[in-house]
Design a protein around this nucleic acid. Sequence first.
DNA 1: TTCCTGACGCTTG
DNA 2: CCAAGCGCCAGGA
Length: 119
Amino acid sequence: MQKQIILPSNTKGQSFFDNVYQVVRLVPKGRVSSYGAIAQYLGAKGSARMVGYAMNAAHILTDVPAQRVVNRQGLLTGKHHFSNRDTMQKLLEDEGVKVENDKIVDFNNIFWNPSIELI
DNA sequence: TTCCTGACGCTTG
DNA sequence: CCAAGCGCCAGGA
């Protein structure tokens, strides 16, 4: 039921950012993804920065779970962009994701890769 | 239009 | 293991 399909061809006309938001919205609760994985899924392999930049803009949107997107090491690199320094961690832990020292515990196990999870 | 700035990631030393 | 360098490219000034 979580498996949804995002057609790249359907993103035509939309900005790269909107594309990113769609993927982020599909990250299941209790799971996390990475900037690079999302970028790769969108066909912008070396443009993980763009995903991060998109998250910065997503700050104003309420339906984009930006806390579920971290860097490839599982570090909460974007925590400073939330209202409070610990908001990101709090949101994650509230979803059952353990965070220790700004890093997601057992990151490899709860990592959600759109290129694999989405068809 | 050009210049600058990034919530990144990989390679090297 | 840690640090630095480079590539990536969409927006805003």
